[in-house]
Amino acid sequence: MALLEARGVIRRPFFEGRDLDLAAGEIVALSGPSGSGKTLFLRALADLDPVDAGEVRLDGVLRETMDGPAWRSRVLYVHQAGVRLPGTVADNLARVADLHVQRARAERIRAGVDGLDASTDADRLSGGEAQALALDRALACEPAVLLLDEATSAMDPETAARWEGRVRAFADAGGAVLWVAHDVRLAGRVGARQERFP
């Protein structure tokens, strides 16, 4: 059975009747032209935007039976830009660690990001470093499903490879990943099944 299952998801005028089956341990690379609605599809799965129709289930449980925050902490969307809050890297991690739903993992979330100094002002991070912060923060939250939106696109190849390895490890440990990526070789590197959008 799929870990994340979507049936007939519609968000007009961007996409109609999308299905998705994402099994535990699986990475699916989603590619398609810019502006085709890939990001909106990820946002719809994460329940960040309302949809016009469709069913989404996690582990067979219908999304509407869980409240929004609980769903999103399990099906976690990571924005391409590596969104930062004001303050240091440590402040950024602490803000997420303090969320009620993340209490159990607070220590792990605060632990710090591989390759980043915790006292660095988050505003000064490069694009790639900000993406590293975002990915680390997301992985530390131990979601069931990661929805990655070009999550390593601004990293140098070496750094990208390291984070691809961490995402692969997340899947190997039973997670599932839907990864929007323009880099066609990414799928090969992380052993992903490829799907086109729309």
């Binding site: 994460a46 960040l48 929004g68 925050p69 609980a70 999103r72 902490s73 976690l76 969307y77 990571v78 924005h79 830009a81 969104v83 930062r84 809050l85 004001p86 803000r95 997420v96 969320l99 009620h100 739903v101 993340q102 975002a134 923060r137 997301a138 939250c141």
Partner: peptide
């Protein structure tokens, strides 16, 4: 909006996400 939605995406409730 990006910052508020980042917090929401990590499981923040609306009051947690809108605090700042």
């Amino acid at each position: 909006r990006p910052e508020v939605e980042m917090l929401l995406a990590h499981g923040a409730t609306r009051s947690e996400a809108s605090r700042d």
